[in-house]
């Protein structure tokens, strides 16, 4: 596992206003928490949408690593490897567009 793995992050439409409309961005990080930190540094404001004050993923947010929900793994501590794909999806919402 590389410390600065290149991780693809899939961004849902309502958050693409933070990423200049990009649906897919590449971030560094060895865990889900680190990737979310990188995301916040690159796109200030996106982090608080995803995590609460204690750093946990908000109840209505699902984060997937290669299609598997991190709630079924180690949450924000779920480790990542080069090439992994992280997906962020609000738990079934009424939809949005940028």
């Amino acid at each position: 596992m590389a410390d600065e793995a290149g991780i693809t992050v899939l961004i849902p439409t309502p958050l693409r206003r933070f990423t200049d409309g990009d649906a897919k961005v590449t971030m560094a990080g060895a865990s889900v928490g680190e990737v979310l930190d990188s995301l916040e540094r690159a796109y200030p404001g996106i982090g608080e949408r995803l995590r609460d004050d204690s750093g946990q993923i908000r109840r209505f947010v699902n984060v997937f690593v290669n299609g598997q929900n991190v709630r079924d793994r180690d949450g924000v501590d779920t480790s990542l490897s080069e090439g992994d794909e992280v997906g962020i999806i609000p738990a079934m919402a009424g939809g949005s567009r940028v």
Binding site: P12, R17, R49, F60, A93, S96
Partner: peptide, 19 residues
């Protein structure tokens, strides 16, 4: 409506950003 475009209230629309 949801206060934010990114939300988890199923079935609801954030009208300023939705169709």
């Amino acid at each position: 409506q949801p206060a934010e475009a990114f939300h988890g209230i199923e079935g609801l629309k954030h009208l300023p950003t939705a169709i």
